[in-house]
Computed example of a mutant assay.
Amino acid sequence: MRLRILSADERLQEAQGKTTMALFGPSGAGKTTLLKTLPTEETVCLDLEAGLKSVQDWRGDSLPIRRFADAVDIACLIGGANPAAQPDEHFSEAHHAHLRAQHPELAARLDAKRIVFVDSITDLTRQAMAWAKTRPEALSERTGKPDTRGAYGLLAREVIGLLKHLQHAPGRTVIFVGILEKVVDDMNRVSWQPQMEGGKAARELPGIVDQVLTLSLFRQDTDQDGAVSWQHDAEKGHARRLVCQSGNPWGLPAKDRSGKLALTEPADLGALLTKINQTLKG
């Protein structure tokens, strides 16, 4: 039995260095460039989309990942062993011990990182779908032909399992980056949704992470009384801002579990994490 009661001080100390975020924005919004606002030595970028061209001058470590199986292994090294997993399952103690024995230098480098920047969850689900299509679950038992429903079901289970494993990574801040897609329905109504393979993982992600942020463009307006406000203008805005609160007037994905962030914040993840952690001290 591994259960133990945490005191308030222990709980706050554990939360101090641990936040999970989902960060969405349209293609080209500059999501990856936010790496530059994070502490270089403490951050590792899991590069699933070969998309680091925009941050060539960033001096931090990155880890290219091209297969979903590799993403699972890296998640196991980062998140540690799941005591609930069976020995033959992903993230089990046996899986974790095997990886650390096979890749001691990689494990040591990852152990030194406090922030994990996953770029991107969109490509993670694409890799997962490519993997799922090769599995027996993606074939019909009756006909032996490809079964799309089986592939999507497997994708959802495996991706959600990986996300939840990283959610529990001890002492780590994990930032999942994804593409935000603009959808216009038949009534010409606009909505925004994460671009991910399969709907289940996209629906469950906001419940897994502490914070959901949308990076978009804004313009600054001043009313007749001199009050300044930020207005969303995704096409002609001049300033990048992070939308942080649900129920925002623009219908953008957002959630602030800390309850301490403004409706929008400057596009600086380092400052945002500092603000969240400072509030935890109080």
Rank of each mutant, 00 (worst) to 15 (best):
L180Y: 10
L272N: 07
R142C: 03
V72N: 02
L213S: 10
I160R: 13
T148N: 15
T222C: 09
E14C: 05
S216A: 11
P266G: 11
R67P: 00
T40S: 11
L12V: 09
P39G: 12
Q86N: 08
R257Y: 09
V177H: 00
A107T: 07
S140V: 07
L139D: 02
I5Y: 09
I74N: 00
T173N: 06
L35N: 07
G17R: 14
G259M: 10
A271W: 11
L180E: 04
A101E: 15
A107L: 03
L63H: 02
E41W: 12
R2M: 08
L242E: 09
V212D: 04
V44I: 15
E42C: 06
G247T: 03
R66K: 13
E89M: 07
I74D: 00
D88T: 10
T43C: 05
D256V: 05
L272T: 14
A15G: 02
A71F: 15
L52G: 09
D256A: 07
I115K: 01
A71G: 00
S229G: 10
T134D: 05
R4D: 07
A130W: 01
P146E: 12
E105N: 09
G30F: 05
E141H: 04
T173K: 05
E105I: 08
V177E: 00
G259K: 12
K145M: 12
G51Q: 09
K31A: 03
T274N: 14
S7P: 12
T279H: 15
E197Q: 13
T143Q: 01
R203V: 10
E197W: 01
F117C: 08
D256R: 09
P83W: 06
I276K: 02
I276V: 15
D210N: 15
W131N: 06
G153I: 06
H98A: 13
K260E: 13
G198F: 04
S258K: 03
R142G: 01
A15P: 00
G282M: 11
Q220M: 12
L154M: 11
A151P: 03
E265C: 06
S120W: 02
P87V: 03
K133L: 14
L6M: 14
T274W: 14
S216H: 04
P136C: 01
V209G: 10
A262G: 13
V243E: 03
A94M: 10
T20N: 02
A29E: 05
D88E: 13
K18S: 15
K133I: 10
T32A: 05
G150D: 03
R172L: 03
A271I: 07
H90V: 07
I179H: 14
A81L: 02
L213Q: 10
T32Y: 03
A69D: 15
E105D: 14
I121P: 10
D57F: 00
L155N: 04
L163F: 11
A262Q: 13
T173F: 01
H98Y: 05
D70H: 15
L205P: 02
G80T: 04
R203I: 10
L166C: 03
L261Q: 09
T134K: 10
I208H: 08
G259F: 08
L99E: 04
R100I: 12
Q56K: 13
N277F: 02
V55P: 06
P26K: 10
L35T: 10
R109L: 08
W250C: 02
